[in-house]
Design a protein around this nucleic acid. Structure first.
Lengths: 93, 93
DNA sequence: ATATAATGTCATCGTTCGCTGACATTGGGA
DNA sequence: TCCCAATGTCAGCGAACGATGACATTATAT
């Protein structure tokens, strides 16, 4: 399933939360945000923090992935991506 | 490749921007944000707006997808969820 | 039908955002 | 080597966030 908008992601978070048998209060406690925030993200509010959104997705076992560019394009190989990410993490610290 | 944090996504955005031969100013104009915002997202700032982040990814042709849970399996196991959440809490503090 | 749980909605407040513009530093082409 | 492009960094400001708590509405269990 393709994620294009905050509404797409919010609907997925709600679906997965219900599939896991959790209510909004329980998920909020597990993620470490307010229940109001869970309401907001499930409703697809566009101005929420990307860090909290990714954390919520991770907490629900939602694996966001990016497809590799199709063969023939000149984009970077996976190993280069990994080193870029490693470098970014080092800069963060 | 798996996107877990704003830094993961920021590094990917920068890599794809360069692969497309764009500079920060050009991408900013294409997305409709400031160049400062592009600097921020590439550096993995966690508190940026999810709506702008997704719009930037879309503008670069980055397709974010979510794998469906395999048929017959129950979703993520509770113990795995708990450890992920515990890790998230430790990072937040 | 009733009671409780879950969700939706709203307001307040301290904090941070995104834009803008300027300036410093680094990268890259000639 | 030089010059310009690209990127990094910084500050001020109006607007919105996330937490909190309360209340209304809907869903669900009995």
């Amino acid at each position: 399933m393709r994620i294009r908008t905050p509404i797409d992601l919010g609907a997925l978070i709600r679906e997965r939360r219900k599939a896991l048998g959790l209510d909004q209060k329980t998920l909020a406690e597990k993620v470490g945000v307010s229940r109001q925030w869970i309401v907001d993200v499930e409703q697809g509010k566009p101005r929420l923090e990307i860090g909290l959104v990714l954390r919520t997705a991770n907490a629900l076992g939602i694996a966001l992935t990016v497809d590799k560019p199709t063969e023939g394009t000149s984009l970077a190989q996976p190993v280069i991506l990994d080193s870029i990410i490693d470098a970014a993490r080092k800069r963060r610290k």
